[in-house]
């Protein structure tokens, strides 16, 4: 309890609030901005959960590069086109979706916080965040570097290939049609 508790709960509340704003805001530029804020809050949460590497990469990629891409795409569109119009039928049409959302959220939260936590774990882990994890940051960082570059190097290679394919894909989609030489 105390300040830490308040900060963490506040971060979670902000995370969910920004996610909702990113979904609900009519103006796409604002929606994208709040997506960026959500990613930033998520990065802070990662940092608190002793994952500074992930925090930095999440900040750079999802709160940085991806948001820049979104804004670049939006800037290529006419300003009037991007805004949905807030009419009544839109709100009514969203009621079933909203109800569905609440039902799914309640079921998932219920099951994950009760029966999921209660399962006996195979490797004898107890899945509760303790109040005191010895934050041996130095060795942790080395561990992550080792696990990325040595233990899971095959995954990293596949990821590099996936990014190559994504680059090829973007190149295909924006290739210029060659003029027919008559």
């Amino acid at each position: 309890m105390g300040l830490e508790f308040v900060v963490e709960v506040a971060l979670i509340v902000f995370l969910i609030m920004f996610a909702l704003l990113a979904v609900e805001l009519k103006k796409l530029a604002y929606a994208v901005a709040s997506l960026g804020l959500m990613s930033t809050v998520l990065s802070i949460i990662f940092y608190i959960l002793y994952a500074p590497y992930v925090a930095v990469i999440n900040l750079l990629v999802y709160a940085g590069a991806v948001i820049v891409l979104f804004l670049a795409v939006l800037s290529l569109m006419k300003p009037g086109e991007e805004e949905g119009k807030g009419k009544m039928y839109d709100i009514i049409a969203e009621i079933p979706g909203g109800v569905l959302f609440i039902i799914i959220a309640v079921i998932l939260v219920q099951i994950l916080t009760t029966s999921y936590i209660g399962i006996q774990f195979a490797y004898g882990k107890t899945l509760n965040l303790p109040s005191l994890i010895p934050p041996q940051m130095q060795s942790m960082l080395q561990n992550v570097a080792e696990s990325t570059w040595r233990v899971r190097v095959i995954d990293v290679l596949i990821q590099a290939m996936a990014l190559f394919v994504a680059g090829l894909g973007v190149a295909v989609l924006f290739r210029r049609e060659r003029r027919e030489k008559e």
């Binding site: 994952a51 992930v54 999802y62 992550v144 696990s147 899971r152 995954d155 990821q159 990014l163």
Partner: peptide, 10 residues
């Protein structure tokens, strides 16, 4: 952590 880093890239 490694899983998340790789997944963020993809």
């Amino acid at each position: 952590r490694t899983y998340v880093i790789v997944s963020i890239g993809v």
